[in-house]
């Protein structure tokens, strides 16, 4: 009789331990997802800050590219304005800013004087790197969401997740059409 009691007690303790560890693991993953989302924000804000400097530098050289320059400024202002809004509208605006910037930097190739400007070269490196950082933080965010969702949906942690109300995270989708078609390459 006593033995049965002890066994039952042991099982209850084990179940409790499993619950505690799984719960903590889920919280850790959820925080990682939140933190990763904040990282994307940091890089997007950095890009807003860089663009006025770029415009100031480019202005004197690219007098005939008024439209391209205005497109960048407008896209930046729009993206900044809705930066508190929903994820879908936001990623659309950021995608447009990316392509406007890409056009501007492509046009800049036609101006040898501009390409020799130290200030412009430094800004170009900063912008290129910020674009990279945006996509790497997006990549890390999506990886974190994948881990978190796996944990929520897989047995046995899905039981804990269901009991404690953990909800699956959303992936950060790319909206700009040209970005979505990442071509598959092979080195073999």
């Amino acid at each position: 009789m006593e033995i049965v009691l002890w066994v039952l007690l042991g099982i209850v303790v084990l179940l409790l331990l499993f619950y505690v560890f799984t719960y903590n693991g889920l919280v850790r993953l959820r925080n990682q997802v939140k933190n990763a989302w904040a990282q994307i924000d940091v890089q997007l804000k950095r890009r807003y800050d860089l663009i006025p400097n770029l415009m100031e530098t480019v202005k004197g050289y690219m007098k005939h590219e008024r439209e391209t320059m205005e497109a960048v400024t407008n896209a930046r202002n729009l993206a900044q304005k809705i930066s508190d809004g929903g994820a879908a509208a936001r990623s659309k605006a950021e995608g447009e800013l990316s392509s406007a910037l890409g056009r501007l930097l492509a046009v800049a190739e036609n101006y040898p004087d501009l390409k020799a400007n130290q200030n412009f070269l430094a800004l170009q490196e900063e912008l290129a790197s910020t674009e990279n950082k945006i996509s790497f933080s997006r990549q890390f965010y999506n990886d974190s969401v994948l881990n978190y969702n796996n944990k929520i949906q897989m047995f046995p942690s899905n039981i804990v997740a269901g009991m404690s109300g953990f909800k699956a995270g959303e992936f950060f989708e790319v909206t700009a059409a040209n970005e979505r078609e990442a071509p598959k390459v092979s080195f073999s």
Binding site: A36, E125, E126, K133, F140
Partner: peptide
């Protein structure tokens, strides 16, 4: 060395 610094920061972000 902005480029080196940026690259390290990019990888810091990618690795979390």
């Amino acid at each position: 060395h902005p480029r080196l610094y940026n690259i390290v920061e990019e990888m810091r972000i990618a690795s979390g």
